[in-house]
Nucleic acid binder design. Structure first.
Lengths: 359, 359
DNA sequence: GTGAAAGCGCTAACAT
DNA sequence: ATGTTAGCGCTTTCAC
């Protein structure tokens, strides 16, 4: 049914060995004319290597496992895309599995991936990290992207939350704000800790004393942003701006402030974090710092591939920096706005609208 | 290094064949005690089948290819999740590849998937559908989910846009609206045609004459919603509600109406379509009809698996219905609101906040 | 520069 | 109910 090496071998008269050497891109020497001929025949016959056979023989699948908490979580798709784009360049594919934040599912998924003989595994967002014996024994490289909990861990790629918070604060301070309310994430997320440290340190660098009453607790959800903003307004000395440490809370905060009769940004500025899609279509458009999901994924794939090719070698936590997107909610001059790039899907639609008539 | 059937064979004294029969869940008869013993040993030794070897032998990989336009497109992750959840139940994994709306990339991806000997392929959203010869020859089942362009096609699973539009219109009419503005999608998307037909037919069913001036063109983007709403307000006879056929345009429409000095929903109601995440956090919360992405994915996987197991057999286009989510923007009574369910990630966070202390 | 042959781990046909 | 054997398609020694 499907064309095999042997078919090509018969068709060309060369042995399967030679054919293999040509078709598997081996750098074993083969006469140029021979190579040429084999390539031609393979092309016309429509040869497609049987990857199962190849992997059985070589114990390398050119496939990596990607273990995500949930493909539907907001930052997972861009992380995955970053991984895929890099892998594809090197002829690797990926098998994606969800763990649903369950150690048991995670364990089963790892077993499954190992059964598939993946060449390495990338853990996205969640990882129970109870050292998986089989995984350790397999000596397959594996690393962590955007791991949400716990402290720094080897072989992990995380966002540089400290730096991001610094960017947001620096921007607000440049805008003249001295008293900036802060709405935090849950304490056990290292992202929360990083952003808070950035907030405090940037204040210090600008010679502004940190005032703990300005720090409101939050849990990343809308209501926490709303409530936090309201509490900030009850302070004896009100802040003139609010740094909500994710976009969802920033949205809640804006509504909270508006409900209290304040205009954003005219009366009080707001900055979010993450650069979620909705920050661009909401009004006022939300100034925010990007969570560099795509870049983290790409970096992860890059490091994994290095380890797959050159052998395992631990690296220290890598931090990827995001950038500040100046929009409206902070109150900055229009001239300071960051130019926006349309989403890929939008670009595609535009092209299509102009080109493709009714099918 | 890794445990093989032969290891188990030696450890138990049974032949590899018997061991295989037990460990591959063959329904070939094996003595209960033998089975028991083999299972035990396999367990303690940590046997994990080598899927490459198995697939080389059986020509079945228990893997399906999922060819998406872009994993980052809004509806793709839930579709993929639906596919994965169903596949997982039957021990199937999936290989996900992006086509970026390019026929060439799509072609290459199919070749790649066939090389991986996937048992079937699901095309998500985009498909050039220039009948891929190798794919046809392979006789592997393949089908289409949420195909965006062109007319009805066999073996495809699409949203029931007609029905969804009907739900939205019925709701608005029940609320007393007789004159409902309509903001359309691009004409060459069948989703646009389905929604428009639902709009017209539901009007007819309720004895309301269709007025073409109420139909404004759109391209799914924010600006089209905004402009469409403004144009509707310039009509001699203004509508009392607007049905924007996706949530992004609904958002644009709401801002357009607000900029014209109208309150939503007090002065004019708005209904969107798709049930995007932001409709729940925006104010007013947007009433919308869900695009049943997850269910479409699940159905696709189900049909594909049927074909993989029982042989290819074409089916006519399957339409999956979404449901109406009554929120605030339509102006319905609070009593009529659809109860909301939190996102999986949110639930997880809540659990974690209560349980997991500092690591 | 090319070919012959072995074997990766597994399953299935064919014995027994 | 169990064992023997062949072979899936490929790569890789090892010969020549």
């Amino acid at each position: 049914m499907s064309i095999t090496l042997e078919d090509i071998s018969k068709a060309t008269g060369f042995s399967p060995a030679t054919v293999s050497r040509v078709l598997s891109n081996s750098r074993y020497p083969v006469n140029a004319a021979t190579r040429q001929r084999i390539l031609e025949v393979a092309q016309t016959l429509g040869y497609r290597p049987n990857l199962s056979a190849r992997s059985l023989r070589t114990d390398r699948t050119h496939t990596v496992g990607v273990l995500v908490d949930d493909i539907m979580s907001p930052f997972v798709p861009p992380i995955v895309r970053g991984i895929q784009d890099h892998l594809m360049q090197y002829g690797f594919s990926c098998l994606i599995v969800n763990s649903d934040w369950s150690p048991d599912f995670e364990y089963a998924a790892i077993e499954n991936l190992l059964s598939h003989s993946v060449d390495g595994i990338i853990f996205v967002e969640y990882s129970h990290l109870a050292v998986h014996e089989a995984l350790e024994q397999s000596q397959k490289p594996h690393l962590f992207v955007h791991r949400l909990f716990g402290g720094a861990v080897k072989n992990s790629i995380v966002p540089d939350d400290y730096h991001g918070a610094t960017l947001a604060m620096r921007h607000l301070i440049d805008l003249g704000h001295r008293r900036v309310g802060y709405i935090s994430g849950p304490e056990n997320w290292h992202t929360s800790r990083g952003r808070l440290a950035g907030y405090r340190d940037e204040l210090a660098r600008q010679g502004i004393t940190f005032d703990p009453v300005l720090v409101q607790p939050g849990d990343w959800e809308f209501d926490a942003g709303y409530a936090g903003a309201r509490r900030l307004l009850e302070l004896a000395e009100r802040p003139t701006a609010v740094f909500a440490t994710n976009d969802v809370m920033a949205l809640g905060a804006i509504y909270g402030l508006q409900d209290a009769g304040l205009a954003v940004p005219a009366d009080i500025g707001v900055v979010g974090y993450d650069n979620r899609d909705f920050t661009k279509i909401f009004r006022p458009q939300i100034t925010t710092v990007s969570l560099p999901a795509y870049e983290m994924g790409r970096t992860a794939a890059e490091r994994l591939l290095t380890q797959i090719t050159h052998g395992k070698s631990d690296f220290e936590e890598i931090k990827i920096t995001g950038q500040l997107y100046v929009r409206e909610s902070c109150g900055a001059d229009a001239a300071l706005r960051t130019p926006e790039e349309p989403l890929a899907a939008t670009v595609f639609r535009r092209v299509l609208l102009n080109k493709q008539p009714e099918e």
